[in-house]
């Protein structure tokens, strides 16, 4: 483990917040994308069109 000294909380906190926000955004993007793809496929099947 890397030695962070007295600023360990600061550095880890900053990395934690930033990674949390990035992962949250990535997750949201993927989730929205997946949901939209499903809905679109369902509607296409209903109307009998293929992509």
């Amino acid at each position: 483990m890397v030695e962070l000294g007295k600023y360990a909380g600061t550095v880890l906190g900053a990395y934690g917040v930033a990674l949390g926000l990035i992962l949250g955004l990535v997750w949201l993007t993927l989730w929205q994308g997946k949901r939209m793809r499903r809905r679109l496929e369902a509607t296409e099947r209903e109307l009998g069109i293929d992509g």
């Binding site: 993927l30 994308g33 679109l40 509607t43």
Partner: peptide, 20 residues
């Protein structure tokens, strides 16, 4: 890119629903 693809699909879904 991913988000734009989602938006395009959303647009297509709207069009399909309107046609439906």
């Amino acid at each position: 890119l991913i988000r734009t693809r989602t938006e395009i699909r959303a647009r297509r879904l709207r069009a399909l629903e309107a046609r439906g």
